[in-house]
Amino acid sequence: MEFVGWILVIACFIISFIGLVYPIIPGVLFLLGGFLVYGLFFSFTELSWWFWASEIIFVVILFGADTVANAFGIKKFGGSNAGMWGSTIGLLIGPFVIPVAGILAGPFLGAVIAELIVERRTFGEAVKSGVGSLVGFLASTFAKAVIQIVMIVVFFIAI
C-alpha cells in the first residue's frame, strides 16, 4: 500500500507542474492534494503546523506571482487593463484552440486583440502589449515553477 501512496503523491506533484503550462489545471490544488494524500496514506503527524503555515504562505505567493508578473509584463510594454484581460482569456483558450503553440500564442493574441478592439490602439502598440503579456507569462511560469519546487522540498524536509 505504501507504493500506491507514493505513486499517487508523485502523480499529484507531476500534474501540478503540468498545470504551469495548462492553466486550466489547478496546479497548486494538486500540489496540496499530494500533501493530503501523503497524510492519508502515511501520517499527518509529520506534517506539523509550521509545514502547513509555510505551504499556505507559498500558495499566496504563487497566486501573487502569477498576477504581478502578468500585470508587470503588460504594463511595462505599454499595455492596458484590456490587454491584461485579453491575455488571461487567451491563456485559458489558446491551448485548446492551438494545441501545442496555444500556450504561448493565446496570451499574445488575446492581448493584441483586446488592445486593438477595446483600446483602439495601433497595430504596433497592440503587438508590443502582446509581447509584454508573453514576457509576463514566461516570467510567471518560471516563478511558479521555482515556488512549487521549494514547496516540494519543504515537504520532503518535513517528512
Rank of each mutant, 00 (worst) to 15 (best):
I89N: 06
V28N: 03
F96A: 12
A69P: 05
G132N: 05
E115H: 12
A101C: 10
P23H: 03
F72R: 08
E46C: 08
N81C: 00
I152K: 00
A53M: 13
I89G: 06
G124T: 09
W49E: 13
I149L: 13
I152F: 07
V4R: 12
A11S: 15
P26E: 09
F30Y: 12
T67A: 12
A82H: 06
V68C: 12
L109I: 14
S80C: 08
W6T: 12
E115S: 15
W85M: 08
I57V: 14
V9D: 01
A126C: 10
V100K: 01
G39Q: 07
S48M: 05
P23M: 02
I152T: 02
G124W: 07
Y22G: 02
V112Y: 03
A158V: 05
W50F: 12
F58A: 06
F17P: 08
A69S: 13
L104T: 05
A111D: 00
A126I: 08
V150G: 09
L134K: 00
L32H: 12
E125Y: 04
F137Y: 13
A126H: 04
L138V: 11
L31K: 10
L32R: 00
F42Q: 04
L29K: 04
S129T: 04
N70Y: 10
I157L: 11
P99G: 09
I113S: 11
G33P: 10
I103C: 02
F156Q: 13
F63Q: 05
L92Q: 03
I103K: 04
G90M: 00
Y22A: 03
M151A: 13
I7C: 15
D66V: 06
V127F: 01
T45V: 11
F51W: 08
G27I: 11
Y38A: 03
L138H: 01
S87G: 12
M151P: 05
A101R: 05
C12H: 01
I7S: 15
G73F: 05
L31Q: 07
T45F: 04
V37W: 10
F41E: 11
P99Q: 10
M1D: 15
A71S: 11
M151F: 14
E55G: 00
L31P: 02
I149P: 03
G34C: 08
M84G: 05
F41V: 12
F3H: 13
Y38N: 07
T122F: 13
A11R: 07
L134F: 06
A143K: 00
V154I: 14
L109N: 02
L104N: 08
G83N: 03
I24H: 05
I98E: 13
V4Q: 14
S16F: 07
G86S: 08
A71F: 09
A143F: 06
D66Q: 07
F41Q: 07
E2I: 09
S16M: 10
V112P: 02
G124N: 14
E115L: 04
F156M: 14
I74C: 08
K76Q: 14
I24K: 03
E125N: 09
L104W: 06
G110P: 02
T141G: 11
A105W: 03
P95Q: 07
C12Y: 00
F63S: 05
G39A: 10
I25H: 02
L104E: 09
S133E: 09
V135A: 12
L91F: 10
T122S: 14
A65S: 15
V4H: 14
F42Y: 15
W6G: 06
L47H: 11
P107Y: 02
F17Q: 09
V146T: 14
L8V: 08
V97H: 13
A114E: 04
I56E: 04
I15C: 03
I152E: 08
